[in-house]
Design a protein around this nucleic acid. Structure first.
Lengths: 267, 267
DNA sequence: CGTTCAGTTGACCATGATCAAGAGTGGTGG
DNA sequence: CCACCACTCTTGATCATGGTCAACTGAACG
C-alpha cells in the first residue's frame, strides 16, 4: 500500500512509515535483536517525543550529560566552538542516531549538540539505558558497533578537512550524507531533503560560507548536484564519488547491504 | 626483564620502570580494577613482546583485523591515504594505547597503523580479549572509556585541522602530546622524547613539511618550544596553550587527577 | 512592512602550497 | 676507509587556494 500524502508539511517519517522506530531499525543493522529486546526498545520509542525547535541547542558544551537522546526525526549536529567564536561541526545526526553515550563516562560534555531542523527526540535516562544494556547483551553489542562506526566517521572527517580540496570536501560530505540518509530510507531515488545551509556546510568543511557558495556552483555547473530549497539531487552518484575521492568503506554499511531490501537500479 | 644500561639507546620504559605494564596502568586511570582482573592483565602483558621496526606498518588498511595490539613501548600512528598518495595521520598511539577494538565489529580496517619508532607490542587474540571482557566487567568499562576518550580526541583533531591556523595547530598538537605523555609518566620536567619528523607533523596537521618547518621556527623564536634531535621542551606550557587555544577537557584526564594522589597498593 | 537570514557576487588579499636547491647526518657496501 | 645514498631539515622564490570585506537580492515572518 502506498501512503503518499501530497502536502509537504507532513514530516518524512509520517509520510513513509519507514522511520516509525528509527533507533530499533538502526540497531538491527548491526546485530540480531531478540523479540524481548525489540519490545523493550519499542517501549522506549513509544514514549512521547520531545520537540526541539530548529537552531536550538539540545546539549551544551560543558554541561554534565544526564540523558541520552534518540533522534526520531530531524537533523542535528555535534559542534565545538573556539573562544573567539570560530565553530567546527564534527558530525551530523539524523534519525536513528543516539547522542550521547558519553553519559556513561564523561563528567562534562566536550562539545555541543545543536538542532539543525526542528527535532523530535526521545529522552532516555541513564537508568533506562543501563537496564537495557544489562538485560540485553545484543543491545550492548549494537551500541558498541554504532559508536565504533561513528568513530570511523570522525576519522574520515579528519581526512576530509585535513587533505582534501574545497570541491573534494563538499563532494565527499554530500556523498556521505546521501548514503547515510539512504540507509535509513530517507531518500527517494536520486533526491533527499537537505536542510543544511551553506553556513552549516562551511562549518562542517572548514571553509567559509562564501567559498562554499562558489564551490557548490561549480558542482552544479558540472552537473554533479542540484541543490536548492533544502532539496538535494545527485543525478550521478558515481561521478560525485570520483570528485570527492569517496570510498564508502568507512561507513561500514556492509551489514545494511545484506539486510536491506533491494532498490531498483538507476544512478 | 633485565635490560639495564646508561646509554641512551635503552628505551625509556626500561630506564624509568614506570611503564612496566602500560595497559594496566592506563585502564586503572578509568576505573577500579580488581586484583583478579589485574592479574589477568598482567599475565597478558607478560607475554613476549613483538618488536616492529620503525616506519613499518603494524596493521594495513583493508585487512581483516585479527588481533588487538597493546603498545608497550614506542610511538605509532593511525593514518589514512588517498588514492593519489596524500596522507592524513588521524591519531598518535603511545604506550598503553590499544589498537584496535575494531576487531569486534568491523570486517575490514578502514585505516592503517604505522610504527613511528620501533615498537614493542603485545598481541592479544580475539579469544583472549573476549575472555577478559566476559570475566571482568570493569575491564569492559575501562575499554569503553578509552574508546570514548579516543573518539573525543578525534573530534578535537577535526577542529584542529578544520578551523585552526598553522601555528595554532602545531601548538595544539604539541600540547596534546605532551600532556598525554605526561599522563603515562613519559616526560621529565618540561621535556620529553619526541620522535615525530616534520613530515609526520605535516601529515597530522594537514600542512606541508615546509610550512611546518617555518611555523616551528616561529614557535622557537617566541620561546614557546625547543625541539631538536627528537627532544621536545616546553618551557612555558601555559603560554603554548594560549597560542594553541588549547583546552585539555577533551582529553578527559580528570579521573587521573582524582586518583593519582591517593594511589595506594601497587603503584 | 521592517527585520532577519540565506544566498549571491565582486574586489582584494593572506595563508600556506609548490618547486627547487643545498646542508647535515647516518647507514651501507665496495 | 671512503663513496654513495637516503632522509631530514632548511631556505628562497613564486603562486594558488581560499579567506575577508562589502554590498545586494529575495524569501520568510512576526
Amino acid at each position: 500500500m502506498s501512503n503518499d500524502s501530497n502536502d509537504n508539511l507532513t514530516p518524512p517519517a509520517a509520510r513513509s512509515g519507514a522511520l516509525a522506530n528509527p533507533l530499533l531499525r538502526r540497531l538491527e543493522e548491526y546485530t540480531e535483536i531478540s523479540s524481548e529486546a525489540r519490545a523493550a526498545l519499542a517501549a522506549l520509542e513509544a514514549k512521547p517525543a520531545i520537540r526541539i525547535p530548529a537552531r536550538r541547542d539540545l546539549v551544551k558544551q560543558g554541561a554534565a550529560p544526564l540523558n541520552v537522546y534518540s533522534i526520531r526525526e530531524g537533523w542535528a549536529c555535534r559542534y565545538k566552538t573556539l573562544p573567539d567564536g570560530r565553530r567546527q561541526i564534527v558530525d551530523f545526526l539524523i534519525p536513528g542516531d543516539l547522542c550521547d553515550l558519553n553519559i556513561y563516562i564523561l563528567s562534562r560534555m566536550d562539545h555541543s549538540i545543536g538542532a539543525i531542523t526542528a527535532l523530535d527526540v526521545v529522552e532516555i535516562s541513564r537508568e533506562e539505558l543501563e537496564s537495557l544494556v544489562d538485560r540485553y547483551p545484543e543491545i550492548t553489542r549494537a551500541l558498541w558497533w554504532q559508536e565504533l562506526v561513528s568513530k570511523s566517521c570522525h576519522r574520515e572527517w579528519i581526512v576530509n578537512v585535513g587533505v582534501r580540496s574545497a570541491m573534494e570536501r563538499l563532494a565527499h560530505l554530500l556523498c556521505e550524507m546521501f548514503l547515510r540518509l539512504e540507509s535509513i530510507g530517507a531518500t527517494s531515488g536520486e533526491s533527499c531533503d537537505f536542510p543544511l545551509t551553506q553556513g552549516d556546510l562551511a562549518d562542517a568543511t572548514g571553509m567559509t560560507a562564501v567559498h562554499v557558495n562558489r564551490t557548490l556552483q561549480k558542482l552544479r555547473e558540472k552537473g554533479l548536484i542540484a541543490l536548492s530549497d533544502r532539496k538535494l539531487t545527485i543525478p550521478n552518484m558515481a561521478a560525485l564519488k570520483v570528485v570527492g575521492l569517496f570510498n564508502p568503506d568507512y561507513l561500514h554499511l556492509e551489514r545494511l547491504n545484506r539486510h536491506a531490501p533491494n532498490r531498483s537500479a538507476g544512478g
